[in-house]
């Protein structure tokens, strides 16, 4: 029997949705280990939305508060999480493989002297040991690893562990923690446009490539994204990012972001291996391309061959009709 710690995330005092995935993964592991699931948030004060975590299987939801925890404080967070992990006697500690989790988890691992299995797409218990699957070689192979350490430290790839309801008590508790002022300080977050979804987190991603011909034509994709009513983000291939048409933050692929949305629509993208590296774990892939032999059709569940300038506006109209 051993307990699982789920490190969840907040921004500006609001729980981030990925937290539900971490608790869902933790619950799965907690059940296999016959243990409790404790969710752990770090914040300056209360975290709006943390009270829902019981629904996804948290037995307890603890918020560690510190005036320096409003924004991510790498050193303070690492110290506080490592301390909890150590004193709580957990068998596993789970993070989200987000910008925050990718920075925090290795720090905690080094402090605890325990290995970290990052960005996993599956997690099970086999013969009492936590076993994970993670894509390697740009998604061209899967590595199955056993963690011979306690606690087992794991970060979960966003969008893979679909939140599942599994009601538990979710007892709320807030504890002030004392940590020294960090040397590394987040001074400011320059936010992207309000409401803009990040491609790494959006449930629907519509990416455009060189086939769009001109940066202004991305308007077509933005209109399609808007038709989905705030659940879709617009991504890009490297070709158009390198050309300066779209920001690097939107790039999908080996040197951009890895995405696993429910629906990925590739528009005017050929499907180079480095692009596939970033989106091949999407649940459903749609490709729109005028070249029937484009490699993107090899990974696409549904393909439409033809001129994107004719097809995309139709698709936007159909989605609008369907959602109306």
């Amino acid at each position: 029997m051993s307990d699982v710690l789920a490190v969840v995330e907040q921004r500006a005092g609001v729980l981030r949705p990925v937290s539900q995935e971490v608790v869902t993964g933790a619950r799965r592991l907690g059940d296999a280990l016959a243990g409790r699931v404790d969710a752990l948030a770090l914040a300056a004060g209360g975290v709006r939305g943390a009270e829902q975590l019981g629904v996804f299987g948290a037995d307890r939801v603890t918020t560690l508060t510190n005036p320096g925890f409003a924004a991510y404080a790498p050193e303070g967070y690492a110290q506080a999480v490592a301390e909890r992990a150590r004193t709580g006697g957990y068998g596993a500690v789970l993070f989200a493989a987000t910008a925050l989790g990718k920075d925090l988890a290795p720090r905690v691992a080094a402090r605890l002297g325990r290995p970290l299995a990052p960005d996993v797409t599956d997690i099970v218990v086999e013969g009492g040991a936590v076993t994970v699957v993670r894509p390697v070689y740009a998604g061209k192979a899967l590595l199955r690893l056993r963690l011979n350490a306690s606690p087992a430290l794991v970060s979960l790839r966003p969008n893979v562990f679909t939140p599942a309801e599994r009601p538990k008590a979710g007892v709320m508790e807030t504890t002030a923690v004392d940590v020294p002022a960090g040397r590394v300080v987040v001074q400011q977050i320059k936010a992207a446009a309000v409401g803009a979804l990040d491609v790494a987190e959006a449930p629907i991603v519509i990416s455009g490539g060189r086939g769009l011909k001109d940066p202004a034509n991305f308007k077509l994709l933005e209109e399609l994204a808007a038709a989905f009513g705030g659940t879709a983000a617009v991504g890009a291939s490297r070709a158009v990012v390198d050309a300066g048409w779209r920001p690097h933050a939107d790039q999908v692929g080996q040197t951009g972001k890895t995405v696993s949305p429910t629906l990925y629509i590739a528009v005017g993208i050929s499907g180079a291996i480095q692009h596939l590296a970033g989106m091949r774990t999407s649940k459903v892939i749609v490709a729109i391309n005028k070249d029937r032999d484009a490699p993107i059709f090899k990974v696409a569940d549904y393909g439409v061959v033809g001129d994107l300038f004719q097809i995309v506006p139709h698709l936007t109209a159909e989605i609008k009709k369907f959602r109306a």
């Binding site: 325990r114 290995p115 299995a117 076993t131 894509p135 390697v136 998604g139 061209k140 192979a141 899967l142 590595l143 199955r144 690893l145 056993r146 963690l147 011979n148 350490a149 091949r280 892939i285 490709a287 029937r292 059709f297 090899k298 990974v299 696409a300 569940d301 549904y302 393909g303 439409v304 061959v305 033809g306 001129d307 004719q310 097809i311 506006p313 139709h314």
Partner: peptide, 23 residues
């Protein structure tokens, strides 16, 4: 503390299909 159990090819995505041509 990480023991490799297996390295495998990713599951083939089920053969997709071309839905059709044009709008």
């Amino acid at each position: 503390g990480l023991e490799i159990l297996a390295l495998t090819p990713p599951p083939e995505r089920q053969e997709g299909r071309i839905v059709g041509e044009g709008p």
